[in-house]
Nucleic acid binder design. Sequence first.
DNA 1: AGACAAATTCTCACATGGAGAACAGATCAT
DNA 2: ATGATCTGTTCTCCATGTGAGAATTTGTCT
Lengths: 253, 253
Amino acid sequence: MEKRAKHPVRTTEKSLTLIDELNRRGGARITTLADELSMGKSAIHNHLSTLEEHGFVVKNGNTYELSLRFLDIGGQLRSEMDVYRVAEPQVEALAEESGELVHFVVEEGGEGVYLCRAKGERAVDLDTYVGCRHPMHSSAFGKAILSHLPDQRVEEIIDRHGLPSVTPKTITSRDELYDTLERTRERGFAVDDEERLEGLRCIAAPIRFDSEVIGAISISAPTARIDDDWAENEFVEQLRRTANVIELNKYKV
Amino acid sequence: MEKRAKHPVRTTEKSLTLIDELNRRGGARITTLADELSMGKSAIHNHLSTLEEHGFVVKNGNTYELSLRFLDIGGQLRSEMDVYRVAEPQVEALAEESGELVHFVVEEGGEGVYLCRAKGERAVDLDTYVGCRHPMHSSAFGKAILSHLPDQRVEEIIDRHGLPSVTPKTITSRDELYDTLERTRERGFAVDDEERLEGLRCIAAPIRFDSEVIGAISISAPTARIDDDWAENEFVEQLRRTANVIELNKYKV
DNA sequence: AGACAAATTCTCACATGGAGAACAGATCAT
DNA sequence: ATGATCTGTTCTCCATGTGAGAATTTGTCT
């Protein structure tokens, strides 16, 4: 999975580095990039012109930026996913019903990727965006998914990404994680008690198809609005129902 | 704008060609790609491994696919655009109010890029997705934007993309286009009468900031639900109001 | 198991990427 | 305006890295 390329194409790597850097900075000029990446100006110019000619980069005056071509490709990938098409309207509905912030997430490369996001009436304002990635172990959706993945996959993911802590409550040991996953499996839903952001609690339910997890939906709300005895929360029932609808509709596709 | 790179980086071009091809096919195996693009298998393997190592490609068994990394980058670009953040809630509201399909679009590289999409109660089911691109001359949003772009920009765009026809009613001559843009400017809104899809009509209003167009919002509905005397349509007023709210809120950012 | 198909690795000749310098174009201060 | 200065673009040539093709490994089907 995380194998290193035996014969990496260095030129391509340079282009990708430039893309990364433009992404990080939200656009930059040639001189800046040359200084930062210690490459020659001409090299950078050649790469950026090539990327521009192919529509991956746009030039505004003297600064180069990544183009919306990325959104095109990404949006196309998403719209071609059956799960997404089935989940999208249900996420909207759940946001309306619960009034909170609802996400639909899938796993890729050991991280969670947000595919939909819908805000209810009193939803909190998180800085998530469609497409953004988040570690699995420090989120409710991540634990919902992990709890139904074979142990070997879970190991791979931990090996690859570690268990970085984001808040004081983040799970940082394998044993603790496996315990939590065990409890998650029993309960059928996962929780995040300020493990990714202080003041925020989340509840998530896995979405399964042919006995494989294909994603998870989650509700996020301020700690004050999610009671201490999680299981009795109305959100749990709403999530369960929504997850179920998605699973059933998925079979019809 | 559409300058050709004087010193294209051929290796990067090969990688980009592979990305295009994977995008077109929605994933492919090495042998297929080698046959299709007449490149050696080892070359393809090297490129794909490199792209995989950097997270732009994922391997499922023997088939390689583009990764959701593209959605990540694209989503980030979008979420960092002030217009988007301001327009998004208004698009939702307009969809609810009108009951139809509402889009928010910006121009990039001479094409329209859909940034938001919201469906009202009885919205038609178009195959647009967030990030998808559409020619400017054969859509209401495109004409709304073109009508406020300097003539020279319009010329550039026509030179670059031509005026391909999509339906029998698509505008295909420069004169006709300029006439329509003139009328669009006078009226303050643009229309599309089955010019991009038979049976579909759209109305669009430009969104301006500091006397520059920065995008457009549009309502799409079946021909039957948009009356022949466009200006008296309730959608026109709704669009005007929404466009205005977006423009005003944009100043606060 | 055996046979077949596909991906992966290896090696080396030669295409090509990029450093550095020269040039052109923009921006700014005087 | 005029020149100074900064930044982007073009040019040239040699060290580098790419990729064809064969060899090997891995995986799949009968």
